[in-house]
Amino acid sequence: MKPAAFEYAAPKSVAEALALKTRYGEDAKYLAGGQSLIPAMNFRVMQPTALIDLNGLSELAFINGDGDELRIGALTRYSAVEHSPLVAERLPLAVEVVKHIAHPQIRNRGTLGGSLAHADPAAEMPVLLTTLSGRVRAESARGSRWIAAADFMLGPFTTILEPDEMLVEIALPTLPPGVGAAFQEVSRRHGDYALLGAAATLSLGTDGTIAAARLVFLNAGDTPKVAGLATTQLIGQTPSAELFATAAQAVDGDIEPMGTLHASPDYQHHLARVLARRVLARAAERAQAQPVA
């Protein structure tokens, strides 16, 4: 047997899952898609004393359009988002991002809530949530609360969730006309963990100048890194290749990449500048293609 022994329970409701977590204590883990947890258990890097399997909680697998946001259940699998006509229509950025996550076999199993609760700085979902300034809802025996993206991730593999809380729902704001978005990442092979990635949203005013811009990096620090320095100088400007090339030079001050096995911090800085330029330009093209009415 690869993983160390653990107790196993498959609750039939969120309330039952929360009660089990309280009973098993802090060394118990929720099992969602398991596509990060089970590899870690196979290596015995993680040895939870109990697994509370959430896969029977079909109430947590849904995608709803609710006003100007999508509400997505925490147990929703990546492939459900990837192939959802609703997401394709209302938030194509989410489809673009999800297609970069590992391989089809992993996406058939991995869940949005699992990825967010895992809070890997090299993962795509935390970057999507941060880029859109989305929210997540946590439930516990004490009640339910919404947590803003900016408050959710505290560090690598660390969130603000309390031991008795479970992430149950995700709210992703959709993008109105006049806002373009793009995501790109560089990995050694498609589906590998990215050496670095970048997401951008860019909104244009009726005069065609940039009204707001957001640029967020993946694997460029201990949490998704918001490039405030680089985007501030875009406001009020007309989109152009020169403008984005200049802004991209400023991302060095926004990120703190730690280096990976296959990319030095210097190389990650280089990738951040290149990807910043590309995603800003792509987001601008898309914003121009859907002007404000």
Binding site: K2, Y8, G34, Q35, I38, P39, N42, F43, L51, S79, A102, H103, P104, Q105, I106, N108, R109
Partner: peptide
Amino acid sequence: EHGVCGACTVLFDGAPVRSCLVF
């Protein structure tokens, strides 16, 4: 046995998954 190679792929309710990443 950690979800990289795909050799253990089986269909789970009709969808391909890594059988080394499911109990």
